[in-house]
Design a protein around this nucleic acid. Structure first.
Lengths: 345, 345
DNA sequence: CGTCAATTTGAACGCGTGTAAAAAACGGGA
DNA sequence: TCCCGTTTTTTACACGCGTTCAAATTGACG
C-alpha cells in the first residue's frame, strides 16, 4: 500500500496539522523547532510521501549550500581521485557538490561556469582545461562567486587564488633522485596541444641546470589526440627505441600515464627499465597514478598529495564563502610531492 | 570596464526595452521571437551581465530538461567511460546531466535518488551499487520519475527496466576462447562483499557445464576492502602461486582490474602469462579497461560495449520521458561483448 | 492607405517555499 | 492563579520567472 503522495508544504501542513512556516523551519534545521513538535512532524512525515521542492527551497535563500566543481576529464584516475577527495570533504562540511566535466572542451567549460552562476552556488572549484580555458568566463565567475583554481593554473590566470602541487619541489625530487642513482634524465613531455604541463617542464629544466646538467626534452613535436597520454608516451619512445636511441637513459615522464606508454614501448623492445637499479634504461613518472604498483615493472614516481589538495581546496573555499573578508592577499597553496621509489627507476 | 550587472529579467526588460514575457520566450527558444527582436535582445544582452536564475526558470515549468545519473564509484575507468558516453549522448539530446556518485555508500545513493525527485529531473539513470542498494529508494524514484537501471541489476530488482551487458554471451566468449586455445579456465571471482558480480560468475559456470568442464572458482573467500580489485586479484593469485598452485592454468578474472592484480602476482613469481600462447599460465579479464593494451603482457579480455550501453540508456530514457506510453512491457536490452585477444591469453 | 496576420506588450496570476512581524498559544515558576 | 518568556501560528510579502490573455503594435501586401 503506497503512502499518499503530498506535493507541497501547504498540503503537508494541512495533513499533519502543523503550520507551514514551522514546517519550513523544521526542514531547514529541526533544532529550530521544539522537540515535541519535531516528533509530531516526523510521525506525520512517516505516513506520507513528501520531498520538499529543491528549486523552491533555494529560490529565496541567501545560501544555496551548494558548491560547483568542474574537472577537465573523466577518464583519468588522477582527476577522479582529486574529485573524490573534494566530494568527501565537501560532504563532511554539509555542502552539496555539483560536479561537471568539461570533456576537454572550453565551450562546455564556459557553459558550466555560467551554470554555476545561474544556480547561485555558494562557491566554485575549478580544475581548468589549461591555457585553452576561457579566461573571461572564469573572471565572470569569480567576480560573483568565491572561487578557487585547483591543480592547474593557466598562464593567463596567475593572479588568482590557487591550490595545487609544488612542481618545482616535486619535479626537483624526481630529477635529483634520478641524477643521484643514475644518469641525468631526459624529459618526456606531454603532447603540445595539451594544457599547461609547462609547470613540470620548467621545473625539470631549472633543476637540471641547478645540478649542472644539460636539459633535454623529447616528445614535444609529436601531435596526438588530447588525453591519450599513454599512446603519446608509447609512440615517442617506440620511435626512439627503434633507432636505438635512449635505450640506456633515464626518462622522466611528464606524468604517469605517459610513463605507462613508455613502459610498454620498452617491454616491446625487450628492454627492462630499472633492471640495473643504478643505471641503464630507467623510466619514472609523476603523479602516482593508482595503478603504478601493479605495472610491470612497477612505476617509480612522485606522489601528488591529491587528498591534501582536495580537502584544502574545499576548506579554503569555505573560508572565502564565510567572509574571512577578502583579505586582499592572493591565496596560493602548494603541496609537496613525495618520492615513490619502485622498480622502474 | 566591467559591464553593468543585471539580476532579474524585469531589470533586463527595462534596460533593453523589450517586455519581460518576450524575454522569457527568447531565453526558452529564440525562434519563438521575431528575428528582428532577437537581434535587438542580443545586442542589449551583449552590453550587460545577465544570467537567468536557474531555480526560478525551473520552478514553474513542466520539464526541467535535466536527467540524473548516479554511479557507484569514481575511481574506476569503467564507470567513467560509461558516464562519459552517457553525458555525451545526453548533451546531444539537449539534456542537462546531474551527476552523482554514491561512493559505495547505500545511504549516499538513497539521498541522491531523493535529490533527483526534489529537483524534478525528467528522468534518471541509475548504475546501482548492487545488492546493497536500497530497493525502496529506487522504487520511490521510479514511481515518480522515468528511470532505468544501467550496467548492473541487483537480484532484488529483476522486474525493472535495464540496459547492460549480456554476461551470458560475453563470459561465454571468454570461456569458449580459453577452452579452445588451452585448458579450461579457473574463475577468479570478485571480493564477496562486492556488488553483484554474480552475473559473470553464473555465466562462467553455465558455459563451463555446457562445454562439459568442471567449474572451479577461487577468490570468493578473500575478504577485501571494497573497490580494491587489483589488490584482491593480486593477493589471491600471490597466495596460489606461492604454493605452486595454478601456475599453468587458465585464469578467467571477474574483471580487468582483478586481472591486473593477477598479472602482477604472476610477474612477481617469474611467470609469464600467455607466453606459451596455447597453454601454460594464461590470464584473461573482462570489460576492456582502457589500460589493457599497455600492460605487460597486454591483457586479453572481453570488451563491454560501454559506448553503446550509455547512449542506448539515454535514448531509452528519453523515450520513456516522452510518453511512449509505458507499453507495460519491461525493457531489457543486453549488449554483446567482443573478444579482445592480446598477449596474456 | 487600409487590412489581416503575426508579434509584442501589460497586467496578473501561479510555482513552492523563505522570511519577517505580529498575534496567539504554551509552559513553567512564583 | 497570574505573569512572563518561549514557541507556534497567522498573515503577508518576497523570490525570479513561466504562462496566459486581451489589447496594442508592427509588418507585409494589395
Amino acid at each position: 500500500m503506497p503512502k499518499p503522495r503530498i506535493n507541497t508544504m501547504e498540503e503537508l501542513s494541512a495533513a499533519i496539522g502543523v503550520s507551514r512556516p514551522t514546517l519550513s523551519r523544521f526542514f531547514q534545521d529541526p533544532t529550530l523547532v521544539k522537540a515535541n513538535t519535531v516528533a509530531r512532524i516526523e510521525k506525520g512525515l512517516a505516513q506520507v510521501e513528501y520531498v520538499p521542492n529543491f528549486f523552491a527551497t533555494r529560490l529565496n535563500r541567501k545560501s544555496t549550500g551548494m558548491i560547483g566543481v568542474i574537472i577537465p576529464y573523466l577518464n583519468d584516475l588522477f582527476f577522479t581521485k582529486l574529485l573524490e577527495s573534494i566530494e568527501r570533504t565537501a560532504m563532511d562540511a554539509g555542502l552539496t557538490v555539483l560536479t561537471k566535466c568539461s570533456h576537454s572542451d572550453p565551450v562546455i567549460e564556459a557553459k558550466a561556469l555560467e551554470g554555476f552562476i545561474a544556480m547561485n552556488v555558494d562557491g566554485a572549484l575549478v580544475v581548468p582545461l589549461g591555457n585553452q580555458s576561457d579566461v573571461r568566463s572564469y573572471e565572470r565567475l569569480r567576480s560573483r562567486i568565491p572561487s578557487l583554481l585547483v591543480d592547474s593554473r593557466p598562464d593567463t590566470m596567475l593572479d588568482v587564488d590557487y591550490v595545487g602541487t609544488n612542481h618545482q619541489q616535486s619535479m626537483g625530487l624526481a630529477v635529483e633522485y634520478l641524477c643521484r642513482v643514475g644518469g641525468p634524465p631526459v624529459f618526456l613531455a606531454m603532447p603540445p596541444v595539451n594544457f599547461n604541463a609547462l609547470g613540470n617542464e620548467r621545473a625539470y629544466i631549472s633543476k637540471m641546470e641547478e645540478l649542472g646538467f644539460e636539459p633535454r626534452i623529447i616528445g614535444r613535436e609529436h601531435l596526438n589526440d588530447q588525453g591519450h597520454y599513454e599512446a603519446h608516451g608509447h609512440s615517442v619512445m617506440d620511435q626512439a627505441f627503434s633507432i636505438g636511441d635512449l635505450t640506456d637513459q633515464s626518462i622522466l615522464c611528464a606524468n604517469d600515464r605517459v610513463a605507462i606508454g613508455a613502459l610498454k614501448a620498452a617491454s616491446q623492445h625487450g628492454l627492462e627499465p630499472g633492471a640495473l637499479r643504478k643505471g641503464g634504461l630507467r623510466i619514472m613518472g609523476h603523479d602516482d597514478y593508482p595503478l603504478c604498483p601493479y605495472l610491470t615493472p612497477s612505476l617509480t614516481t612522485v606522489e601528488q598529495n591529491l587528498q591534501g589538495i582536495g580537502s584544502r581546496a574545499v576548506n579554503l573555499l569555505v573560508n572565502k564563502i564565510h567572509g574571512e573578508k577578502n583579505s586582499g592577499d592572493q591565496i596560493v597553496e602548494l603541496f609537496d610531492g613525495a618520492l615513490q621509489v619502485r622498480e622502474s627507476a
